[in-house]
Simulated assay, not measured.
Amino acid sequence: MKIVVTGTAGFIGFHLAKRLLERGDEVIGIDNINDYYDIRVKYGRLKELGFEKEDYTFAKRYKSKKYPNHIFYRIDLEDKSAIEAIFKEHKPTHVCNLAAQAGVRYSLTNPDAYIQSNIVGFLNILEACRHNEVEHLAYASSSSVYGLNERMPFSVEDNVDHPISLYAASKKSNELMAHTYSHLYGIPTTGLRFFTVYGPWGRPDMALFLFTKAILEDRPIDVFNYGKMKRDFTYIDDIVEGVVRVIDNPAQPDACWSGRRPNPASSNAPYRVYNIGNGSPVELMDFIKAIEKALGKEAKKNMLPIQPGDVPATWADTTALERDLGYKPGTPIEYGVEQFVKWYREFYGV
């Protein structure tokens, strides 16, 4: 396959690109390398993919020194002409859109970044797919779309009309936009609702990274909702396996779909939405214990109320993923945390 992967300097995009390259696919990577979090991590990921520079010119093509079938462009998704040029030149067969302005709490203070990257940028990807006969578009959604829904586990057939952050609203918007293009232009699209992804090369703004760093530096960690939180932590290798299976199996129209009783996870158009989660929520305090065990050091804790935009629990119903693609994530939290800590110590030399 010839696959455009956006967000290849990002956590999931980096791991996905590496997996696709190692199985022989051609990957056209795109990322704007913004400074939302420690840019050294992004440069480190790109170096793992065979790009040695730490100063990338926008819209210039870079060839990997490690993978002959990999090229990279530094581009903002909002740059419509640059996106159009890449699609026109390379004519990808498949696209996986993982680039986005991430973070729930950041969206409370920087809403414009989410509209530009997650809405305008995604529209540019949809238009590029439409005009270049792309066979399948897979794209990142998020478990945050479930918002105020309290029915557990979260099912792709649940209503998701009550987001509580602009980040979540932008991801729900992506699903609606994708359905429109599937319906109007017959483009197969699949949305992937990721549940709290963690593992080596993880994001520095996420709890595992923040907790590990603070504990090693002998600083207290902030434990929100007084520890009464549950998260469906999903290991990065499980996420990538799910994404690859989705890419390889383009969405098909659902012959059983009815407008009288519409299933929000499918359509009479080639459109699908899946949860990719472990399906086993972990108590926040148990998660912290796993980090303490891997580090061999106890955490000092600041017990705090829940933050705006946060939900107390997430739990993925992966029935649809199992039914359609024969896959269910299952990496134990202890193993995943241990792998992250090993990577963290090596990367930062601590």
Rank of each mutant, 00 (worst) to 15 (best):
R261E: 12
D238I: 06
Y271C: 04
D237W: 02
A255R: 14
N275C: 11
P264H: 02
P250C: 01
N278I: 07
V282R: 07
C256N: 14
N249C: 02
C256F: 13
I247T: 01
N263V: 00
S266Q: 06
A255S: 13
S266T: 15
D238Q: 05
N275R: 06
P262C: 06
G277Q: 04
V244N: 12
I239P: 08
A269T: 05
A269L: 06
I276T: 07
P253C: 02
N275M: 08
P262Q: 10
N268Y: 14
N268F: 13
N249I: 04
W257Y: 14
P253M: 08
D254L: 03
P281Q: 13
C256S: 15
W257F: 14
D248E: 14
N278G: 14
S267Y: 06
N249A: 08
V240F: 00
S258V: 02
S280L: 12
D254T: 05
N278V: 09
R272W: 04
N263F: 05
I276V: 14
V244R: 12
D254C: 03
E241R: 07
A265P: 10
P281R: 11
A255K: 15
N268P: 01
A265W: 09
I276G: 08
P253K: 08
G277C: 11
S267I: 06
Y271V: 07
D237F: 02
V243S: 04
E241W: 03
V282I: 15
S280I: 13
P250F: 07
V273C: 08
W257D: 00
V273N: 08
S280D: 15
D238M: 00
P262R: 11
V240Y: 04
V246N: 03
R261A: 14
P253N: 06
D248A: 10
V243W: 04
S267R: 07
N249Y: 03
S266M: 05
W257L: 01
Q252W: 03
A255C: 03
I247V: 12
Q252A: 09
R261M: 13
P264N: 09
I276P: 07
D238F: 00
G259N: 11
I276R: 05
V273Y: 03
A269F: 00
V273L: 14
R272H: 12
P281V: 11
D254S: 09
A265S: 15
R260N: 15
P281F: 11
A251N: 05
A269Q: 03
A269G: 04
D238R: 01
R260F: 15
P270S: 11
N278H: 13
G279Q: 08
S258M: 08
A269W: 07
G259M: 10
G242R: 04
N275A: 12
I276E: 07
G279V: 09
